[in-house]
Amino acid sequence: MTVIVRDLRPGTGADVEAFARVRRLALPYLVSTPESVAHTIAHAHPDAHFRPLVAELDGEIVGTAQVGIAHDSTEPGQGYLNVYVDPRRTGHGAGSLLVRVAEEHLATHGATTLFTWVLDEPANRAFAERHGYRPSRSAHFLGLDLANGALPPLRTPPPGVELRTAADFADDPRPMFVLDAETTADEPSDVPVEFTDYDAWIAETWQHPLLDHALTSVVLVDGRPAAFSAAYTDGATWYASAMTGTARAFRGRGLAKLAKNDSLHRARAAGYTDAVTGNDAGNGPMLAINKWFGYEIRATEVRHVRRLG
């Protein structure tokens, strides 16, 4: 059996569909569609040097890698490679070859520190460590049976507080950009991120095909966006909380719960049956909120790091 690694051909529907399929098989808690894969490739920032790779085993795509530079990080030289192999097709060297090609690409573009997410399972962690990666922080994937689960009842917002949706900001999304930038900057992470490019955010985030503007809930306090819960959907059954956050000046008032509960109730009414989300293992407040909703941990990933040179 022969394994080769090559660049994904974005104009080839079969390539894009296989890329999304492998990701779903390897990590079903990440919502991925051919449209979302194609969008990410088309709108990647030039400074990210984004390179999607596929591994073929005798002509069949069995592995993928998302590779790039964290151009929006406050620290230079941060690279990432996230490798996924079809669980039914492991043991043929596809993962190792993807790692090698990805590392060569990142080193060429100035990366000095490489980050990768690895499922917290013995074989996966051993694979990462054999390639020189060492464990860092961890994160959980959580799931909720949206069709049959008992969501907390909706509550009436207090005076001065209003529930809206992202669709209400279609004419001017900048207030959503400001809120997203502030909350993302405060997320626990090995790679600190700072959103400063509004046009890039519009292309990469606001216009992302998975982002459901009608199901993304926004809490306004005295007319100002104060909290939100962003909804990713696959148009069929899967609903994912892409980001839930509150502006610093409004934290501690239960606004994130208000936004997420509103979004979950409307997602269930729209026919979505499976809800997923992800949390840094050290983000106690958000883990507590998700437990309150009835989410349960389904899997854990461990971020691994390798220093070059």
Rank of each mutant, 00 (worst) to 15 (best):
D262N: 13
A185D: 12
T300D: 06
V193I: 14
D168V: 05
A185G: 00
D199T: 10
H71Q: 14
S138N: 13
F50K: 04
I297W: 03
Y80W: 12
P28F: 03
F228K: 12
G143V: 11
G68R: 03
R125Y: 05
P28K: 02
A227I: 04
H109V: 02
S36E: 13
H109R: 09
H39P: 00
T277Q: 00
W292I: 00
G149L: 04
V37C: 04
F228Q: 13
L179Q: 07
D180S: 12
G284N: 09
P153D: 15
L106D: 05
N82L: 10
L264H: 02
R266N: 06
D212W: 08
M286Y: 06
A70V: 12
T244L: 01
A14Y: 01
L97E: 15
D262K: 00
W292H: 14
V221A: 13
S138Q: 15
F250K: 04
N124Q: 14
S96Y: 01
A123D: 14
L210D: 11
G79C: 06
A111P: 04
Y295V: 01
T112K: 11
H213A: 12
E129T: 10
A256M: 02
Q207A: 13
L258S: 02
L25K: 13
S263N: 07
H43S: 09
F115A: 08
T2N: 13
T165P: 04
Y239L: 08
V305L: 03
Y272E: 11
D171E: 15
E301H: 15
V219F: 09
T300K: 07
R6Q: 03
H213I: 03
F19K: 08
D168S: 15
P135G: 14
A181T: 03
P52T: 00
P175D: 07
H208L: 03
H304L: 01
T90V: 13
A227H: 09
A170M: 04
F19E: 11
S73M: 05
P10K: 07
E75R: 14
E121K: 14
A20K: 08
A147G: 14
A269C: 09
P188E: 11
G77I: 08
G245W: 01
D186N: 09
M176N: 07
D171H: 12
L119E: 14
V67Q: 07
D262H: 12
